Amino acid sequence: MKSIIDTHIHFDQYKIPDRRRILRDMDEYKIDYLISVSTNFSSAKANLALYEKDARIKPAFGYHPEQELPTDSELADLFHFIEKNHTKMVAIGEVGLPYYSEVKNKDGYLELLEEFFKLAKKLDKPVALHAIYEDAPIVINLLEKYSIEKAHFHWFKGDPKTLHQMAQNGYFISFTPDILYEEDIQIIAKSYPITQIMVETDGPWPFDGPFKNKITHPNMIHKTIDYISKIKSLTTDEMYEQLYKNTSYFYSL
């Protein structure tokens, strides 16, 4: 094992005993950092508190789109919090568009995402994105509108044309442990530029295959890297080094 970084985890959502276990395990499993994304204002405050207790937890502040839109006061509080604490965060995130919620009218979510992009540009921060399938081209247009170059499409799923455009624009994507058993994800990994990929767990989201009925732990990333190295026809050591280099660059670690 070599050093790894979990580029997308909801660390604040873990039960306290599981958080403690993961933090205890980090040195053993060579887990250097956790990029802990936020889902709303209370989540952002929780992630900041976690960072202040352990600097290996790198917070991102945002509003997850798979929920009702925030009220005006909630949004004002969140944006004020981000502005006040922007030096302690590594990114704006998680932000994007709702897909699984099957929202019929996404105009409000688009307006919210646009405000987050304006803030990311102002603060010179990357964005961690929830934007898959047909939502991705819409988000790409907004990224181009605001000239945002550092965009991380986490756990991406989409068509080859969109993937090509993302690669051409220099955007990054990340792979979860499901790459071990999901063929469509394996195909994406095979085609995407090696200098623009990262790894994540999206924990505490659970996985199937060899991870079924297990608490999602960042140490699962080691199996992910081993599998990606085979797809990319690289040694495992080469894959570790490339992924660490990619992530350190993207999140300015």
Rank of each mutant, 00 (worst) to 15 (best):
T39S: 13
H152C: 00
E238V: 14
E83T: 13
H222L: 09
V127F: 02
Y14T: 03
A189V: 05
D32G: 00
K161D: 11
D202I: 05
K106T: 14
L123N: 04
Y192Q: 09
Y171V: 08
I57C: 03
T7Y: 11
K232V: 12
D208F: 01
A120K: 02
E115Q: 15
H64K: 09
K145R: 11
W155L: 09
N85T: 10
I31L: 14
I31S: 03
K118Y: 11
E238M: 14
L69I: 07
K118R: 14
D107P: 00
I16R: 15
D12I: 04
G108N: 07
Y249V: 06
L97C: 12
H154W: 03
I35M: 04
K230Y: 10
I215P: 00
I225P: 02
I57H: 03
M220F: 15
N141R: 12
S229A: 15
H130N: 10
S147I: 04
V127M: 05
K58W: 11
M239G: 02
G93F: 06
T39P: 03
I221S: 02
L129S: 09
D208R: 02
Q165S: 11
A55S: 13
L69D: 12
M166I: 11
S229N: 11
K106G: 10
E102F: 14
P160Q: 03
K125E: 00
S38T: 10
I22C: 03
M166W: 10
E182Y: 12
I221M: 08
L78D: 03
Y192G: 03
S42D: 13
F79Y: 10
I188L: 07
Y63T: 01
H217M: 08
F81T: 00
F41P: 01
I31P: 02
Y192N: 09
F207T: 07
D72T: 14
L112E: 03
Q196F: 04
L78S: 02
L48A: 04
K104H: 13
D32E: 15
T7W: 12
A55Q: 11
I173F: 06
K2D: 12
